[in-house]
Amino acid sequence: MNNKRILLIDDEETIQEVVQLGIEIEAGWQVAIASSGLEGIDLAQAQQPDAILLDVMMPDMDGISTLSNLKANATTRSIPVIFLTAKTQAAEKDQLQSLGVVDVITKPFNSMTLASQIAKILRWEM
């Protein structure tokens, strides 16, 4: 399963780089990058990725608004979304999970094990 395409929506450039490189090295998957919610929605519609990694805290349009847009759009509604967040409280995680994401991965994470973490969540074979 080396043909997975992941869309990362995160405004942090260093995160973009380490996630992209880590996933590519670990699993050989393609990682597309969007630096904002709006850009991410466009890319999701255009590229139809297998999964979206969505940062919660972003300027302009935050992760929650981005998610609601993705879920509102018929072409992106069924793409599984995983939140990336620095918020670690159980209540906060529960709240985020209730919005319709498949899971929440908290920072700091290890980008070299991120692909296997995603595969486990989405029950992909690696």
Binding site: E12, T14, I15, E17, V18, V19, L21, G22, I25, M57, A86, K87, T88, T106, K107, P108, F109, N110, S111, M112, T113, L114
Partner: peptide
């Protein structure tokens, strides 16, 4: 909450970068 976010994001980058380097890829 702010510190949490502001520390964790750069830590993620540092941590991940080091892990990638350690793979010698």
């Amino acid at each position: 909450s702010v510190v949490s976010h502001e520390l964790r994001t750069p830590l993620t980058s540092i941590h991940s970068s080091l892990k990638i380097l350690a793979t010698r890829k």
